[in-house]
C-alpha cells in the first residue's frame, strides 16, 4: 500500500486538481481532455485498489479490515462518480466537481495507507 503506485496516484491527482481549479477559475466547462484525464486517473486508482484487494488475501491484513474495505469501495467509486456528475454539469462548476474529486482522492489514498500501516497482530 505504501509503494510507488500510491505516490504516483497522489501526485497525478494533485496535478489534475490544480488543472481543474485553473479551468474553473478561467470559467471553462470540462473538455473532452479533462474528462479523459479523470478516466485515466480512475484507471490508476482501480489498479491501486486491485493491488490492495490482492494484498488482503496475503499475509499482512490491516488491523481494521472492515474500515479498510469500506475505504477501498469509496476510493474506487469516487472518480467515476465525479465524472458522471461533471458530465451532468457542463459549466465551470463541472470543472470544480472534477477538481473536488481529484482533491479528495489523495486524502482517501493517505487514509488507506494509514489503516494499512497497522497490521493484524
Amino acid at each position: 500500500m505504501n509503494g510507488p503506485l500510491s505516490v504516483a496516484t497522489i501526485v497525478a491527482a494533485l496535478i489534475l486538481a490544480a488543472w481543474y481549479l485553473l479551468r474553473t477559475a478561467l470559467d471553462r466547462a470540462p473538455s473532452r481532455f479533462d474528462l479523459l484525464a479523470s478516466v485515466a486517473l480512475s484507471a490508476l486508482v482501480t489498479v491501486l485498489v486491485v493491488v490492495a484487494v490482492i494484498g488482503l488475501f496475503g499475509s499482512s491484513r490491516p488491523h481494521d479490515t472492515a474500515t479498510f474495505v469500506g475505504y477501498l469501495f469509496t476510493t474506487i467509486a469516487f472518480a467515476p462518480t465525479a465524472i458522471v456528475l461533471a458530465r451532468m454539469e457542463p459549466t465551470r462548476w463541472g470543472s470544480l466537481i472534477l477538481g473536488v474529486g481529484a482533491l479528495v482522492l489523495p486524502v482517501l489514498v493517505l487514509r488507506l495507507q494509514q489503516i494499512a500501516s497497522v497490521p493484524l497482530a
Binding site: 469509496t74 465525479a82 456528475l85 462548476w93 470544480l96 473536488v100 479528495v104
Partner: peptide
C-alpha cells in the same frame, strides 16, 4: 445551480 451542486457534493461527502 452549478455552484450549489458542488456545495451539495462536498456536503454529501461529509454526510457519508
Amino acid at each position: 445551480s452549478g455552484l450549489g451542486r458542488v456545495l451539495l457534493l462536498v456536503y454529501g461527502i461529509f454526510a457519508l
